[in-house]
């Protein structure tokens, strides 16, 4: 039995509530490229713990309000 973890985020939602902050503005605040923000927002890339904290800090919220973690057990294995 294998455990598959899924990390989801609410970056888009938080950007909306932060006066429609642009991806570029968030990238500038966190010190990464806009492409990285796009990839994280789309769930294609899981950020490091440091970057995740920086993103949460940019929105002035706690990390678990932006990122959520789910563990799914794969019964087939």
């Amino acid at each position: 039995m294998k455990n598959k973890c899924t990390i989801t985020n609410k970056i888009r939602e938080h950007r909306f509530f932060a006066s429609e902050m642009t991806q570029q503005q968030l990238a500038e605040k966190t010190g990464v490229s806009r492409q990285t923000i796009i990839a994280i927002e789309a769930g294609k890339y899981s950020p490091s713990l440091e970057l995740a904290f920086k993103i949460a800090y940019a929105f002035d919220v706690k990390i678990d309000q932006v990122f959520s973690f789910q563990m799914e057990s794969d019964q087939n294995d």
Binding site: G31, V32, S33, R34, Q35, T36, A39, P47, L51
Partner: peptide, 10 residues
């Protein structure tokens, strides 16, 4: 400068 920035994903 914003485009050139190298981050963890790079």
């Amino acid at each position: 400068a914003l485009e050139v920035v190298e981050d963890e994903r790079d």
